[in-house]
Amino acid sequence: TLFEALYDYEARTEDDLSFHKGEKFQILNSSEGDWWEVRSLTTGETGYIPSPYLA
């Protein structure tokens, strides 16, 4: 399933992933509550992002 970022986000820890509004992601793991592990389709990087920032 693909999701798109609604807002920009700046990583706060080394496990987080910074991203920009409009960036698209593949969800790798959504079992961690509000923090999902994703792969950016723009950069190929993986990390955790806050799920409320996605649509």
Score class of each variant (00 low, 15 high):
S30K: 10
Y9A: 02
L54H: 08
I27N: 00
L6I: 08
T46W: 06
A11G: 12
Y48L: 11
E45K: 13
L54C: 10
Q26C: 10
A55L: 09
S40M: 04
K21Y: 06
R12V: 12
T1N: 11
R12H: 10
Y53D: 09
P50V: 03
E14A: 12
W35V: 07
S51W: 14
E4T: 14
Q26K: 04
D34L: 12
T13P: 03
L28M: 05
F19R: 01
S51R: 09
S18R: 03
Y9V: 01
Y7K: 04
E14Y: 09
L54A: 08
P52D: 15
D8M: 02
V38A: 08
F3E: 02
Y48Q: 05
L17C: 06
D16C: 14
L17W: 05
L17G: 15
T46N: 03
D8Y: 04
E32T: 10
W36D: 00
K21M: 06
E45L: 14
E10K: 09
E14D: 11
F3S: 02
H20R: 13
R12M: 10
S30C: 13
A55G: 11
L28G: 01
Q26T: 07
K24T: 07
D15C: 15
E32W: 10
F25C: 04
R39V: 07
Y9I: 03
D34Y: 15
H20A: 09
L28C: 06
S18D: 02
P50F: 15
Y53G: 10
L17Y: 04
S18E: 04
R12K: 12
G44L: 14
E14F: 12
E14Q: 11
K24R: 11
A55W: 06
Q26E: 14
T46Q: 12
P52L: 14
S40E: 01
L17T: 15
D16T: 13
Y9D: 03
T13Y: 15
A5H: 05
H20I: 10
H20P: 06
D15E: 14
I27H: 02
F19Y: 07
T43R: 00
L6E: 14
T46Y: 04
T43E: 01
S51A: 14
D8K: 01
L41R: 01
G47D: 00
P50C: 14
T1P: 11
T42H: 08
L6N: 06
T42R: 14
A55I: 11
S40Y: 03
T43V: 00
E23D: 14
I49W: 02
R39A: 03
F19S: 02
R12L: 10
I27M: 03
W36S: 00
E37I: 11
E32D: 13
